[in-house]
Amino acid sequence: MRLKLKRIFCLLFCFVLLCTTGCWDNKELDGLSIVTGVGIDASKDPGDLDLSFEIATVENGSKKDGGGGGEAPYIIREAKNRFILGGMDSLRYGNSRELFLHHNQIIIFGSDIAKAGLKNYLDTFMRNTETRMEVWVIVAKNDARSILSTETKQDKVTSVALSRMIQNERQISTYSSTNMLQFTSRLVDRSTAPVTLVVERKEENGLQTLNFSGMAVFKDDVLVGIMDMYQMQGYILSMGKVNGGSVELLTKYGNANLSITSSDCEKKIILGENNSITYQLKIKTNLAVGELQNFRSMSINRVIDLLNAEAKKDLTTKIKASFAESQRLQSDIYGIGAHIHKYYPKQWKNLEGAWSAVYPTIQLELEVETNVNYSGKISESLNMREGHE
């Protein structure tokens, strides 16, 4: 009996070894072009796309960082085709390596292509088994090609620089940046409009930089507007937890820069008669004094009271401006429709078909509470110490 069990065990062991000898779809690293960034622009030729693929050149990058070699740590391969996959296939000619998307960091859509709609182009990435749904989706203020070709000083690979910039933004708030999963989830939801960061390239004194300059607002999959940084701060404050950012205040007594240490909001949606909707927001924000200018001969207590009042006014204006802009664009970026669908399904049946027309009629009731509770290592500035009133 024991001998029979041993034979069975040996057969099973051999079978397991045969099954774990390798992967059917493994790919050798030296046969791949590792794509770290993809740019998609509208072409001058109707129906075509101008495609840009940022490909890491690991060996060159390491030599340059170490002081040797003069080649860039990446190359940009370009293609023109009606299809993204067709453009990738066309790059096989004249290229000894296959494009590999698994390590792609970011997908950048030019503003022209975003205004035409993104569903057709997202389809390619969602079907591709190499695409990660965590890849970041952003919109270039102009064209995606110029963004990918920007040579930043701190991070040599543009896509890596952008990915790190997004991670920095997400330490403040997770609501402005969007990955493919979040973007497509909002498209599937149909009532909630996608948003994502807008990046632009700047050059001054020969130095190239990339900056986030606002937030792209979509209606379905079509780019319909861009909120500036002022409106964008109002949006993220009204969405949930915020753990950073600053508030600049200009008053007749002096100027101040306050740091947001924490912020949170309570949301409530009230359905009234005749399909009227009220959106109630209660926001509580804690701030710290980062910098004071002037406020000559004023006590710290008086300055704090003034800053609380001015900060409340500033945040209220930003939040209302953001909400009003979303209504002008008829884009429910706050997910109000999704909330009604979930908690009031019967009422939603009457609203769903005309949601674009109903959304601009929603009334906003806003309550903002600010608390300036930290003045830094000192309380009074040098100007304030010149004698109190």
Rank of each mutant, 00 (worst) to 15 (best):
I319F: 12
F9N: 00
K313G: 08
T124C: 09
N211L: 12
L223D: 02
K156Q: 13
R127E: 08
Y279W: 09
N286V: 00
L148T: 13
I172M: 12
M239D: 02
R328T: 11
N294S: 07
S259A: 06
I138N: 07
V195K: 04
C10L: 11
R190E: 07
A354R: 14
G61R: 05
E151W: 00
N294P: 07
G68N: 15
E266A: 15
T361E: 13
L12G: 07
K252C: 09
V217Q: 13
M165E: 09
N128Q: 11
A56F: 15
F9C: 00
G66A: 13
Q233K: 02
V157H: 08
Q330M: 01
Q154N: 11
T285C: 06
T131R: 14
A42D: 15
G86N: 07
A114T: 14
I113M: 15
K153F: 09
R186Q: 12
V160Y: 06
R7A: 02
M215Y: 04
W136H: 04
F323S: 13
S375C: 08
Y74V: 06
L250M: 03
T261S: 02
S326T: 06
R170F: 01
M180T: 02
N257I: 04
Y359A: 01
D41H: 14
D155I: 15
V358M: 05
Y93W: 12
Q231M: 10
Y74K: 04
K320R: 02
G94F: 12
S159P: 06
N128L: 07
Y253V: 03
S246K: 07
T129D: 08
K252L: 06
A321S: 14
